[in-house]
Amino acid sequence: MNMNIQDITNNFQKEIENAQDNNALESLRVKYLGRKGIVADLLNSLKNLPVEKKKQQGKEVNDLKKEIEEAIKEKTQFLVADSQSLEKEWFDISIPGFKHPRGHFHPRTIIMRQVETIFQSMGFSVVGGPELETDWYNFEALNIPKDHPARDMQDTFYVPPISEYSDSEDLVMRTHTSPMQVRYMEKNNPPLRIIVPGRVFRRESTDASHDYQFYQIEGLMVDKHISVANFRAVITEFFSRFFGQKVAVRLRPSYFPFTEPSFEIDISCVFCSQKGCRICAQGGWLEIAGAGMVNQKVFESSGYARNEWQGFAFGFGLDRLAMMKYKIDDIRLLNSGDLRFLRQF
């Protein structure tokens, strides 16, 4: 009998090791612990033994039973855990790969590139300049002296002088891209054709059509014989190509200290073909840019001789163009960084 129990234990160990699923375990349980199982048989055989032996053998059989129960329970848990982790790590090699999200351009960048492309095709170079500008380039060189009322036309962020970088010159955040006219002409001789896209700053409160920083495109063309007629041709061609339709341009008298004469530029409404709509306030015209013939004083500031050269300069808001093209109704969205807005482009 003793030998018997030892054999049974050994057999069971082997068998449970080989059991790989719940069914195998269940049949193992029936085989050993079932009503007609091996353990039950053993218990039955105890009946015929004398009391002393019965006690000793009975204990052994009970230990065996416990051992088997424990082992089966353990193995069951192991199998369950094993099957769960298998499910988790399930890897379907037939699924196609997913695309990594790629960045995309800001609407203003898209418009800027379109504008640059059109002007480049007309022979204009694209140049850039500093956003922190000296008072000289931003104002004085452009015929706007310190006490001139024209300074009130733009609200300026004045910056305390930084002794490290300049000889305590007065600094401003540039209020327009026009300082580049002088900076460029100082280093280059006519004939010249440039555009200057860039960020500018105004100290004013914001609303749907005003922000304290926005983008401008400056244009400058200088030669011996450049006239308003050349300007009209260039600007008409630009807006027609930009909006992809024939655009009429009209000039109205205006004033900028760095041009003489100066004008405001209206284009025929590109939304209603001048029939009158909400965007052009029923007028059929959209106010879109400022321009003029370069003031001789600006040529002098740049180191050119007076009355030697003629040229036109113009400037318009890039944000405004983007807003018109994409029908954006609030300029502040462009600087908001709001992904719900940006993902639409």
Partner: peptide, 12 residues
């Protein structure tokens, strides 16, 4: 009629 006319600094 009240006309609001924007006179720029050069013609003030």
């Amino acid at each position: 009629f009240i006309l609001d006319i924007k006179v720029l600094p050069n013609r003030a």
